[in-house]
Design a protein around this nucleic acid. Structure first.
Lengths: 337, 337
DNA sequence: ACATCCTTTGCAATCGATTGACAAGCTAAT
DNA sequence: ATTAGCTTGTCAATCGATTGCAAAGGATGT
């Protein structure tokens, strides 16, 4: 037999729909006599009643969904941040479950735009963008006028939206300081694509310390086309052609680092004796490598947790915490340096 | 100024709400005079009208969403199948965009159950499970009585639901035949966890051919705890302890294979001279490795496309195609064998 | 005994879009 | 001239849950 609607439940029990609604709700349950409440709940379970969330969303004006934008679903770090966010959003005891609408922008502004339109049409309660690029600024600003928008992982200088971030600048600086300690005189960065602030910040932090410590960097920046290991692998030639040849490479993320390592292996050079490599993020693969990767551990938990907190307080209308402090990542020294 | 509802639009234009609805719709637009239609559309754009999909969903009984269950969001192959599905679902010209609700089960039946409940409450138009394990059978069967359920990637023997699958058995067989050709006499499988049919089928296909060709396998099966490179790395000891020592390993997926390769490197053995390794899926990393991985390319496009097609036809109520033929994966020979 | 308060429940409006039934106006056909 | 048929648009019901308001009934206080 088909599952009953609230109305049918009400008829069967000989009470009004509103009583059912209240008895089944979390916050209005106290308005209903304990006896009735139990009767209703029992009947609801027995009959296999299933609330229609589309109807509830319409009436409430809140859909209990949040839109999540990621640049790339294959990126482990993004996924882990999202996992933390979702986990935190649904850990609340009283709060009803929030369903995330997750989609990928591939760093295409047109995709971001389309997705945000969809989210707004679906009346999401908030939007979390881990995909913000400068090209999205206007779209996000626009969206923020209708619904809370939270920036995570990637910041946007021109837009002052609540954000949950990693201190990428400091992350870059940490690597440079470490290279300095190890006595490297000539180093090199392999940068990710310029779209997002993330890589720029890492580059700036790194270069600032290098300048300060008198460490040499090649005059021309080396950019990988994508932040992937395949793209990283391709950059090794460029790295080795700079002169004097660097003794250490700072790859802007672990995927790039792994690509470089494989290229270095192919060439028969030794790591770290001939050339040292450090990455960023500390993905799982970093530990699996035959010579485990030195890298900067991304503060996934902190960023995710903070983003979730921002979402929660913005949805409930609590005073949004002011400017949040970015979380400091942590160097993990392994064997590639 | 706040965005108008359909009602407000109607008032401004002095027509009925129903006219607006029809003018803006795809399929009923012909019921409205071209002139009026244009007037409405223009006004809609100018005023920034944004349809409320929660309201539309309630009225229509269809939400234009599909629930997608994945065991693990970090698995590149699953993600790629999902990408294909989403792409195909939204490529239709006339059909309105379908929003996927993506969630991860981590192979926990309780999570699967909870998610399916949520999907049903949200009135998804269909559910696609790439996460089916035997423990989920009942839950899925139950769900299938309310909404179309499609199985992708992982099959479920006891349940005859429309499925989009890879012929894993044949995939395993292909590897065994290839090992035979290369003259291997003693080989070994590193299996993934038993939960899903996938790995079982690969194992069976492989073993059947080995038996037929007189190739020796160790008596005790070697299982990795998870289908990850970290878990794969840990299994090398077990592999090397079998006697006679195998000269080739068939890892049930690329992550496992990569873990094994790293372990082999650490130990100073040569690939493929001392020991050959083949994987399954053909993830991107397989090509980036210093010695690129021989592997079985998963028919991502076919599986994804077929799943999307099933969803489409089941939603529109078209005759569901009968039993579908699983797609044959393809061996990609590289340098680890 | 009467006013007052509290608890519990029902009534009815509402969220915003969609759609079947129907009416008005117009053209074409017999 | 009348009927039939088509186009275009309106009316009103509907999807299923939520919630402000009010009423009924009971308990308490004076």
């Amino acid at each position: 037999m088909r599952r009953p609607s609230m109305k049918e439940l009400a008829e069967r029990l000989g009470v009004d729909r509103s009583t059912i609604s209240r008895a089944l709700s979390e916050d209005k349950a106290h308005l209903v006599a304990p006896e009735t409440r139990e009767k209703v709940r029992k009947m609801a379970v027995d009959s296999g009643y299933r609330p229609d969330l589309t109807a509830a969303a319409l009436r409430r004006g809140r859909s209990q969904t949040v839109g999540v934008l990621v640049p790339d679903l294959e990126n482990e770090t993004f996924i882990n941040v999202i996992r933390t966010i979702i986990g935190s959003l649904n850990s609340g005891d009283g709060t009803p479950a929030t369903t995330p609408l997750i989609a990928e922008t591939q760093d295409r502004p047109s995709a971001a735009q389309r997705l945000i339109e969809t989210y707004l049409s679906r009346r999401v309660d908030a939007i979390i963008s881990l995909a913000s690029t400068e090209a999205d600024e206007e779209i996000l600003a626009e969206a923020a006028r209708e619904v809370p928008v939270i920036l995570a992982v990637r910041s946007l200088a021109a837009l002052s939206l609540p954000s949950a971030l990693c201190d990428d600048r400091e992350g870059g600086a940490i690597v440079a300081r470490y290279f300095a300690e190890r006595g490297h005189k000539t180093v090199c960065q392999v940068r990710g694509p310029l779209l997002a602030t993330t890589f720029n910040n890492r580059a700036q932090g790194f270069s600032a310390v290098c300048a300060e410590k008198g460490i040499k960097e090649p005059p021309e920046a080396i950019h990988a086309e994508h932040a992937t290991s395949a793209a990283g692998k391709k950059t090794l030639d460029a790295v080795l052609q700079t002169s004097p040849r660097p003794t250490a490479i700072f790859a802007h993320n672990d995927a790039l680092a792994i690509g470089l390592i494989e290229a270095i292996r192919e060439r028969g050079l030794r790591i770290p004796e001939d050339i040292a490599v450090a990455g960023f993020n500390d993905i799982k693969m970093a530990q699996v490598l035959a010579t485990p990767l030195t890298t900067v551990a991304y503060p996934i938990e902190e960023v995710g947790e903070h983003a979730a907190q921002l979402v929660r307080s913005l949805i409930t209308g609590d005073p949004a915490p002011g400017q949040s402090v970015p979380f400091i990542p942590k160097l993990v020294i392994r064997r590639t340096t």
